[in-house]
Design a protein around this nucleic acid. Structure first.
Lengths: 350, 350
DNA sequence: TTTTTAATTGTTAGCGCTATCATTTGTTAG
DNA sequence: CTAACAAATGATAGCGCTAACAATTAAAAA
């Protein structure tokens, strides 16, 4: 530790290592970043000096000098939800293998907050963004476009991504599930959404409506579970549904968490699933298949979406991928016990 | 956009803003960081210039110059687990209100990986660390101590923290739950742990053993659920337990995920919970209270632990808190239907 | 042997900010 | 009216690294 400029303590620098190894700082830098360019003996000497001094490379200085932060930013609606954790892991795993660090921020499903969060992250000069969702404020889009930072949007679909897209058609997927329920013989299918005006949620609701309309089942019936996606919300909505007359024969939920909450609440009320009422969810979360009865759901490749998005982003950063790249992910309709399909019926899409 | 040094494109800098506003760069910096030191007119002029130029503050340069990154690092065993998401949110919420960004990394329950991860994060010069767990390699500890970066450990307890601690006694908590089960009349209580040699897991197992020993119930019985904590592991272990003769009358699991997996598996096998066998978990996860029967568990203040850890860390960073600060969090034994307590019995601790 | 070329290392000049001190201007006290 | 002080702004010198180029040396070609 040396004292510098007004007594500020500083750690070991590359210069210190260079002095110990008897080389220039640039050579130390090369050993760390392009070791093949350095003669083996010198390299060994430098590595010994690094160990001896306990030097820790300073990525802050490196980022400033190289104009590359080695950080990718991940923007999601919320970090405290089992729905996105697998996608986070997908991004994180890919990032790690490429020696890139990931920094996360949440928008709470609000485009305005998203704008703030993205602006804040831009100050760190990330090399790229993975953003969940395709619905942004005009300013957010302008900000990202002006910054010139590669962006991959995901978990939704659009013909006009900011940059690149790992798409998922929430509309198609939910419509397919609705059709599957109709095919199973259900006629009074109620949809459970949220009050939050989130595009992905809306697309799922619309998919349901389209499925109902095409089946000629009359007016769709949508209930909102409140702002929060939680089992508790599912429970509360289940109570409202139980009071409906005539009672629906199936409940299709925006996601598996709501569906599980509803399913368990019905059971607690003495309403048999699926005998009295069927329940289906969306998301293919791990616990769905373990419930009794097992929960029918739309399985989506959450981990793979994160993975794919990160790979695409790294391609854009490296310059090997062109702007406008798009990749549509599929989904699988998993009909399980909660909708009467006792054998694991599976339909594949895309 | 200007072209500089070999055609590299550069964005708007503070210098550009200063020129437009007709002030020095230093004044722009002050407007952004210590606005009270700047005359109101000038401030307005600078702010206008910022808007006009679309300037985005560069935290990389700021970090280098100020020796403060405005980043806190959070080290956890895994990001893809519902167990830690609330703690993450706790840290993240506090960080946000202090204009600090959080960067996360996972260790996969491996001290060796933790060492690597911490070294990698140290390169970003974070202002502090929140680390889940108190068990580290010698090198990790040395690294952190040498770096002089404030550290708050959490989710476990120790008399010798690296720096500060937001503690949780896994031993006490699990022992208390064991005693509660004994008090409910259970006599053949089996414990389900994991094969992973994780200190928190071990402490819980020891807590169970101590509870069994003190109750004079003979030899403890521990089964390992495999490496992964998942409902599937719980299911598999439940099958092994169902085959035991004489059959245990209660199953105490390392965490709620395993417990839920076991509970649901028992039901599927036609083994009634709690009539044939009781089940209890650990963690107080959201879904536990929604299961049928509702799952008895040890509720721990996950969100608050994250919050407290972050607050403590920020205090250390600001220099208002001394090293060695410790804060022990409590737990609550939640006896619910899965152990026969139909009324919500609650015992508080600490 | 001399020239050309490649491989290796070093030198220089920043990257875009901020700590520190110096300077200027305005206020208050003597 | 001037000295003494406070408040507001600016000038300077880095923070610790790397891009770009220069210099040196060794190997290959002529």
């Amino acid at each position: 530790m040396r004292q510098k400029r007004g007594g500020r303590a500083a750690g070991v620098t590359m210069e210190d290592v260079a002095r110990v190894a008897g080389v220039s700082a640039m050579t130390v830098s090369r050993v760390l970043r392009q070791p093949t360019l350095v003669n083996a003996d010198l390299k060994a000497r430098v590595e010994a000096a690094i160990r001896e001094t306990g030097y820790i490379y300073n990525l802050v200085a490196s980022s400033l000098a190289s104009q590359r932060s080695g950080i990718i930013a991940l923007i999601l609606p919320t970090v405290a939800s089992s729905i996105f954790t697998d996608s986070v892991k997908g991004v994180s795993d890919v990032a790690r293998t490429h020696a890139v660090q990931m920094i996360m921020a949440e928008t709470n499903y609000s485009p305005a907050e998203e704008e703030k969060v993205i602006e804040a992250l831009l100050r760190r000069r990330p090399d790229g963004f993975v953003i969940v969702g395709v619905s942004h404020t005009r300013a957010t889009r302008a900000l990202l476009e002006k910054s010139g930072v590669p962006v991959v949007e995901t978990w939704d679909s659009t013909p006009t991504p900011i940059d690149s897209l790992v798409g998922l058609s929430n509309f198609d997927a939910m419509k397919a599930m609705t059709e599957a329920l109709v095919a199973q013989g259900f006629r009074r299918i109620v949809f459970v959404g949220t009050a939050t005006p989130d595009r992905r949620a809306q697309m799922r609701a619309k998919g349901y409506e389209a499925g109902i309309a095409e089946a000629g089942l009359g007016a769709p019936l949508i209930l909102n579970a409140g702002d929060l996606t939680s089992m508790e919300s599912g429970r509360i909505v289940a109570e409202r549904i139980a009071a409906l007359r005539p009672r629906p024969d199936a409940v299709l939920c925006l996601n598996d968490v709501l569906a599980a909450g509803a399913l368990l609440a019905f059971q607690r009320m003495g309403i048999a699933v699926p005998a009295d009422i069927a329940v289906a969810g969306f998301g293919g979360l791990d616990f769905s298949s373990h419930l009794n009865p097992s929960l029918s759901t739309v399985d989506i490749p959450r981990y793979e979406m994160g993975q794919k998005a990160a790979e695409m982003l790294l391609g854009r950063i490296a310059g090997t991928a062109a702007q406008g790249g798009t990749c549509e992910m599929g989904y699988r309709i998993m009909l399980r016990e909660s909708t009467g399909g006792s054998r694991p019926t599976e339909a594949k899409a895309s």
